[in-house]
Amino acid sequence: MKIMHLGDLHIGKKVNGYSMIENQKDILKQIYSTILKYKVETVLIAGDIYDRSVPSEEATQLLDDFLSHLINVLNIRVIAISGNHDSPTRLDFSGEILAKQGLYILGEYKKLVNKISINNFDFYLMPFVTPATIRKKFETIIEERELVISTYDDTMKFIAGEATKNLDSSRVNIALYHGFVIGSGDDEKEIEKEDSVKPLAIGGKESVAEKYFLDFDYTALGHLHGNRKVKSERVRYAGSPIKYSFSEKNQKKSLTIIDIDKDKFDLEQIEIKDRYPMIELKGTFEEIMKANIDCNAYLKITLTESVLDAMNKLRSRYSQIMELGIEIPTTDSIHKDHSSKEIHNIPIDELLEDLAQSVGVKINSEEMEQLRNILNEIKEVAL
């Protein structure tokens, strides 16, 4: 079976106030063409379908268009699970009706083992779930077995363990899971995680051992945004199809396609083309303005000097500045100590220049004239 493994679509996401909807539409078109070219039969979506638990109308419409095109136009199956950004209840709506059309979505654990059988394939669906939810949902079983479910690792040891108890080795067994999976001997603190990935646990362990998935013929993971394997070639993250933070700027986004059967496993990565590149720039205002880059790129700019009204001035050249910061070396700052006794004897121009220079700002003659006028107006009002 030819399968496309997707994850972390985050439909409706905004990055620093910029909507990704148009970018996502472009990516979905690339997905359609890749499905046709490689004759994909089934699409797996490993969670974080939406970016928010309550998606916008625009996001809901885009997902509806996407799934309708896959099923009604391309005539392929879709199997999907919820992620930590999704609302499990919303995704479960009309699940039984949709399954008859070839769309299988599982948001909540209505039962411990959730299996979909298609031809000689068994798909085991394991959406994102917290330990507390599993403790409450399967309280009787957990108490009878005297199990301790306090971490995500405990949770998936329990859930995946139930799924693998009765695996049919004559069939192809595929798992879908949304979470943070690490290999044997790995330290979760050393695993690269993108800035746009929401922590699953605050101050606690959020990782799950890869070993719980090694009995499956393939495990389609979601959560981390880089396209990567864990340790086994068959336990993989598809990664997000779009760069959702500047920590992802150097990642090569791609679509994962596997051709799998009991005696076959081939994997291909099909590169995705960015609508706009993500670029970080650092330097003086003049250096930034003269940079040889796409003026429509998503930009993170760090100025090494203070510039009045910097954002508006930069936007005269660059249309999509997502972040703007100022980083001035302390050696360039000028600090002068004027006592209250002598401050009245210092010309206002000098005081303003000293104040500006202390934060790295250079005031030109036109700006100085404007400041003088403002101060004079304030004096007139005060008198």
Rank of each mutant, 00 (worst) to 15 (best):
D195C: 03
E22W: 00
D65I: 12
S340G: 02
Y212H: 15
S94D: 13
H69P: 02
E271A: 14
I11M: 06
I182T: 13
F246V: 10
D26F: 06
L200D: 09
S306A: 13
S232R: 06
E57A: 15
P131S: 01
S316D: 12
Y177T: 15
E248G: 08
V208C: 12
S169T: 13
N23C: 07
I49V: 14
K313C: 05
V54F: 03
F93A: 12
K136V: 00
N84P: 11
S68P: 05
G12R: 08
V113L: 00
Q24A: 09
P55T: 13
S333W: 00
A99G: 11
F128K: 05
A356Y: 04
E287W: 01
S339P: 02
K189P: 02
H5D: 01
K37T: 14
K262Q: 04
E268K: 15
K100G: 15
L63F: 12
L70Q: 07
L6R: 10
I270K: 13
L255F: 05
A238V: 08
A99Q: 14
I81N: 14
L371G: 12
R372H: 14
L303N: 10
I202K: 15
A310D: 02
G83T: 13
Y218P: 01
V172P: 05
P88L: 09
I343Y: 06
S82L: 08
E233L: 05
I141E: 14
S358R: 04
E192P: 01
H223E: 06
I79M: 09
G185M: 04
M322D: 03
K37S: 13
E206Y: 00
E143F: 02
K165V: 03
I182D: 11
H338T: 05
I279M: 08
S240R: 03
I202P: 07
K249H: 03
Q269L: 15
G360Y: 01
L355Y: 14
F121G: 11
H344K: 15
I202A: 15
V78T: 15
I346S: 08
E353D: 08
V381S: 10
F180Y: 11
T151N: 04
I45G: 07
Q269M: 12
D354M: 04
Y109P: 06
L167M: 07
K115E: 13
S68E: 12
N250C: 01
L62I: 11
L324Y: 07
K111L: 00
V361H: 11
E287H: 09
D266F: 07
N173R: 10
L103C: 07
S319H: 10
R171V: 00
E188P: 10
N364F: 00
S87A: 09
P55M: 12
V78M: 03
I374Q: 02
I321D: 10
N23L: 03
D215N: 14
V78Y: 08
D261I: 09
L106I: 15
P347Y: 00
K100Q: 12
N292Y: 07
A99L: 09
V307H: 08
V181K: 08
M289I: 14
F285C: 12
L324P: 09
Y109V: 08
K211F: 06
N84T: 12
Y212T: 05
N75T: 14
E139L: 06
I97A: 14
Y109A: 12
D263W: 03
R171E: 04
L6Y: 08
G95P: 01
I326F: 12
I21W: 05
L44W: 04
I293P: 07
F246Q: 02
